[in-house]
Design a protein around this nucleic acid. Structure first.
Lengths: 234, 234
DNA sequence: TTTTAATAATAGTTTTACTATTATATAGGA
DNA sequence: TCCTATATAATAGTAAAACTATTATTAAAA
């Protein structure tokens, strides 16, 4: 991950696996527009109704131009969720920089999963808040396809796996004999998104309540689950 | 749920919310063929590549005939996952009939989530084993859409909610002061499918290993998670 | 036997998901 | 300054998906 600092603003450039895209969207205005407005449009229409024609219309470009950046809308979705995972990894990194207690670290990790955005809207072409909503609603579609093995072989899910590995390391720091560090790490991440989605759309499947970007109950629940499973007091 | 017993075989008829389908597929040969072969074809092609034309071809019928049973392939998917959830509820029911210990009940529930089929292939037009695979791979797509609120309002997810409620009741029997019975119930169910999927396709996201229909490690892990969270010894 | 309902056959439409080709604008180098 | 490479835009298309309408045929029920 590269961090560019300028005098006027802090601009973060997140570097993503090259096989996700055909041409790096961060390197041109059109590319950044594709990212920015695809997030808004997927949030608005849902992934199924979203397509490159509508996106091109929205940004005053054409369908073939968008296709020069991404093979198809599925590749674009993988790009967006990878961006999101890198962003969460970045949040965890800067917020745990002076923290030594692994329990405290895990708490920060959970907060990063749940909040993901709120405080620091640092990148002008990505609204992390809306991207988080998109990942909650559409994220699993990135890897729930018939092509998962082939795409995994190309490294398209490295960003997610890297993040989960980092979390697993912290889990083992807390409790070195815990048998399921990776499963707990991925479950905390998936559960966070799932339970937020349930609270919003299928409230009978959860106990927590959620208001517009107020996810404190999710945070509390995940911390409770983690502490119980790893055997420590909060 | 109705149970029909005949002399020659035990045939289970699972009754599903009428708003899922246009015409009850269990009431005709064509309908049962649609169910049977849609499961096989979705398993083979994945939900995205599956469509009513290919299905009609496979069962020697026509596209318009299939459309007389289901509004579209999304409705058919909701039907299939609802069938699956009812099937799991049925398994839980018959296997906990003489069990009083709620901890033992929860163990049976977890086994039903994980195994879902293996022993009792009772319904001739549904292969529960393959249906389980389909639910693992495609299940979340049933409710992760822009139409979720509208469809939830029509009662299309009642079968899932009913199942989760039953599990939540058992969780509270074990530990009446547990704060998150619904979240734990839905998470056990989602986690089961998720972790099996990860073991098969993204093994770096989990610790468990899975072989063709050998899910004992998942079972063990979920039981461990449940016992830790609810504070009992296995 | 008549009527009804279910299915099949045929033939469409609209939208999606792409691709090919050509034109234009712009940026950098000689 | 011109030349050339490259990005993008404009236009026009194709193949398949996701339906729908209409009519014919068959089977079952009254």
């Amino acid at each position: 991950m590269f961090l560019y600092h300028s005098i006027m603003s802090v601009e973060i450039k997140i570097s993503l696996n090259e096989s996700i895209y055909l041409r790096d969207p961060q390197d041109s205005t059109l590319g950044r527009n594709i990212i920015k407005h695809s997030i808004l449009l997927i949030d608005e229409l849902g992934f199924e109704a979203f397509n490159f024609k509508k996106l091109a219309q929205k940004i005053g470009s054409t369908e073939p131009s968008v296709y020069r950046y991404f093979e198809n809308k599925h590749a674009l979705l993988i790009y967006l969720v990878s961006w999101y995972w890198e962003w969460v990894a970045y949040l965890i990194k800067i917020n745990t920089i002076n923290i030594n207690d692994p329990k405290k670290k895990l708490e920060i990790i959970i907060n990063s999963f749940v909040l993901a955005s709120v405080d620091n809207p640092t990148t002008d072409h990505v609204d992390e808040n809306i991207l988080h909503r998109v990942v909650i609603a559409e994220g699993t579609k990135a890897y729930r396809t018939k092509e998962v093995d082939e795409e995994n072989g190309k490294g398209l899910f490295e960003h997610y796996k890297k993040l989960i590995t980092k979390v697993a390391v912290v889990i083992l720091e807390i409790n070195p004999s815990f048998e399921y560090p990776y499963a707990l790490a991925s479950n905390l991440c998936e559960m966070s998104n799932n339970q937020i989605y349930f609270a919003k759309h299928l409230p009978k499947l959860t106990d927590i309540k959620v208001e517009e970007n107020k996810y404190s109950e999710v945070q509390k629940m995940l911390n409770y689950f983690a502490s119980k499973l790893l055997g420590y007091e909060m």
